[in-house]
């Protein structure tokens, strides 16, 4: 199941099964049904799936928060619960909850002490991290006074406290404003440039598409696709969106699909290249005006929606 590769594997998950017991008379509900994938050194790996697909459950298994029913997980070639392997890992959970009675500095200092001396962050490293996530001014504020976005940032700092080789980020863009999202994307890309590996769970597909090298899509506890983004997404033009004015509607009938018409201006979807040429010729003849012309190729979202619908 796991694809063969020559580059160094930092994470390998094989045939992972996990079920939960629930109800008064406990019944088992399978959540993961034989997940296998591997993550290679230095890449940004996107782990996608709709709500309840098993993304967070997979992460929890890898990090030793829950125990799988069966299957094997290896981190840096070692069993995933080995402390030596966990030393090289950072983790930002979804909607992070932290010790709210601590200040940001105390908080980072606490996590620093959970690592062996050679990986322990000192004062300078903590200041550096506070600077990286833009929380220098809030360093001595208790976390109970933090906004959701600030908690997400301090959570990221916590995930990077040991200068990890592999960072797991579960929905890291949730709760961030557009500027915060851009900053976080820059931090992730920067980690990759430093040779780190990033494992990213996210619903925000645009962000994944922008920065991920490879992705795996999980639906209903099974992986339905995995591979390099370039392999998954074809570059074929699906249709072209054209916004124009100066042409009567009747002349355009049959050439494309009207999406919206506002006054003189119309937005039309054109699926055929010949028809697109015809429209452009008409515009020239009738002295019309083109405002925009956007070819739409397949996106990750199209693939994702297709996969989810198929199941």
């Amino acid at each position: 199941m796991v694809e063969e590769t020559t580059s160094l594997e930092v994470l390998r998950v094989e045939n992972l099964y996990k079920s939960y017991k629930s109800g008064f008379i406990p019944r088992r509900f399978p959540v993961l049904k034989g997940i296998s994938f591997s993550v290679h050194q230095g890449e940004i790996f996107g782990y996608l799936g709709p709500n309840g697909a098993g993304k967070t459950t997979t992460l929890k298994c890898i990090l030793g928060l829950i125990f799988p029913d069966s299957g094997e997980i290896k981190l840096f070639g070692q069993p995933h619960l080995f402390l030596k392997a966990k030393e090289k890992v950072g983790y930002l959970p979804e909607n992070p909850y932290f010790y709210e009675y601590l200040t940001a500095r105390e908080f980072l200092n606490f996590y620093a002490q959970l690592f062996p001396r050679e990986r322990m962050a000192d004062k300078n490293k903590i200041n550096e991290l506070l600077h990286l996530v833009g929380l220098e001014k809030a360093a001595d504020l208790q976390l109970r006074k933090f906004s959701k976005g600030m908690l997400q940032r301090i959570g990221l700092a916590q995930a990077l406290i040991n200068d990890p080789e592999l960072v797991f980020l579960d929905e890291p863009l949730g709760g961030l404003d557009p500027i915060g999202r851009k900053e976080l994307r820059d931090i992730i890309v920067n980690l990759k440039e430093k040779g780190k590996t990033v494992f990213l769970c996210s619903h925000i597909l645009q962000d994944i598409e922008m920065i991920c090298d490879r992705v795996a899509i999980i639906v209903g506890g099974r992986l339905v696709a995995q591979g390099a983004l370039t392999d998954l997404i074809s570059e074929k033009v699906l249709f072209t969106e054209i916004t124009l004015s100066g042409l009567p509607r009747e002349t355009l009938e049959g050439l494309g699909e009207f999406v919206s018409v506002r006054g003189d201006r119309a937005l039309i979807k054109v699926f055929d290249e010949n028809k697109l040429s015809q429209i452009l010729n008409l515009v020239r003849e009738k002295k019309g005006k083109i405002y925009s012309l956007v070819p739409r190729t397949e996106t990750l979202e199209d693939i994702f929606v297709d996969m989810v619908k198929q199941r």
């Binding site: 990090l63 928060l65 402390l83 030393e87 983790y91 959970p93 992070p96 909850y97 040991n162």
Partner: peptide
């Protein structure tokens, strides 16, 4: 409160 997530995922028994 799920604070345990970030602690147990660190190299600690």
């Amino acid at each position: 409160k799920k604070t345990i997530y970030t602690v147990i995922s660190k190299p600690i028994h």
